[in-house]
Nucleic acid binder design. Sequence first.
DNA 1: GTCTATAAATCGATAGAC
DNA 2: GTCTATCGATTTATAGAC
Lengths: 195, 195
Amino acid sequence: MARTQGSHAGITGPRIREAALRLFAEHGFAAVSMRQIASAVGLQAGALYNYTPDKQALLFSLMKEHMDDLLGDLSRLPSQDAPQARLESFVRFHIAFHLDRPELVFIAYMELRNLTPENFRVIEGLRRDYEDALERILSDGVAAGSFEVADTKLATLAVIAMLTGVTTWYRPDGRLSVPEVQDLYWDMVRKSVSA
Amino acid sequence: MARTQGSHAGITGPRIREAALRLFAEHGFAAVSMRQIASAVGLQAGALYNYTPDKQALLFSLMKEHMDDLLGDLSRLPSQDAPQARLESFVRFHIAFHLDRPELVFIAYMELRNLTPENFRVIEGLRRDYEDALERILSDGVAAGSFEVADTKLATLAVIAMLTGVTTWYRPDGRLSVPEVQDLYWDMVRKSVSA
DNA sequence: GTCTATAAATCGATAGAC
DNA sequence: GTCTATCGATTTATAGAC
């Protein structure tokens, strides 16, 4: 089955998503026009609608794939270790994953309010699943006497907020390497939930 | 000097700022039109330009005032105490201040990219002043042997990120009171910088 | 100080040619 | 699959009456 002349299916789609990702992260979903996205890929605006039914679906698709990747990678972490080891794995994973895709992280947080209600519920549910995984580690650690945490739900949100904040300041050419950042954050998290 | 008929100077201005604040926080700066703001205050769009030269100045004004309030209140905290006491004051202050104005906090972080370059530099400088105040506390504590922090700059950003995250989940009618939240976060912060 | 009216530009999305 | 052209709505901001 030969491709139609001028067709770039399989390559144009991803390029559109990458351009949208970059532009949404830089200017915000509402501030970016379909014409801007098309221009960044070398297309006219109308051609975008061969790849997405509308602008909203493009945003949702980016966020959904991001959350699926996050939960997919998370599920591959060792889950039989002691709570302290699982917490360390979580901390190092969270930092590495988020530093690897700062634009997606930014969008997944900043553009929640630009999702339609039903799309919002989907993303919010996935986010909740992720939080629950960390809370489970903390609860197990408290039950085992490894951690001393007065409120596991609050501690979960506090740790995630602390770790995710790394994307706001980390620069690859900066003072610290990723492993150094992981070590420093792990040290703080470890102490914050210790007895 | 009698006021012109129909004039509401001194009351309309603040009402416009409050409406803009609420709408920006809910939908984002770029997604809110001057007509929406005017409508929320019972005006036509043109009337807004008696109070702000343009939409950008309205956003900047909200963010600038917020940062000035933050630094003003911060400067009134006791600064002669021991590092541990100063850190506790900072943590409790940060939480109380931010929970008291979640919409401004949200905007001051989310809409940075919608500021013009010169306006961005102003806000970024004030934010840096605030971070420096916390880093000073941590550095003093390390020098005094009260804290054990491997990297005071990273610890500063980590603590601020953790604390500011409270605005994303706290609800006044929720499970925890503000003092309870302050206690829980202070416990985690205290341990995270301890020896 | 607020209004109506409007300028000038841009928006998302669609239709139809190729 | 991409193009040109366009619809209809909306945008910021301004001009001028009152």
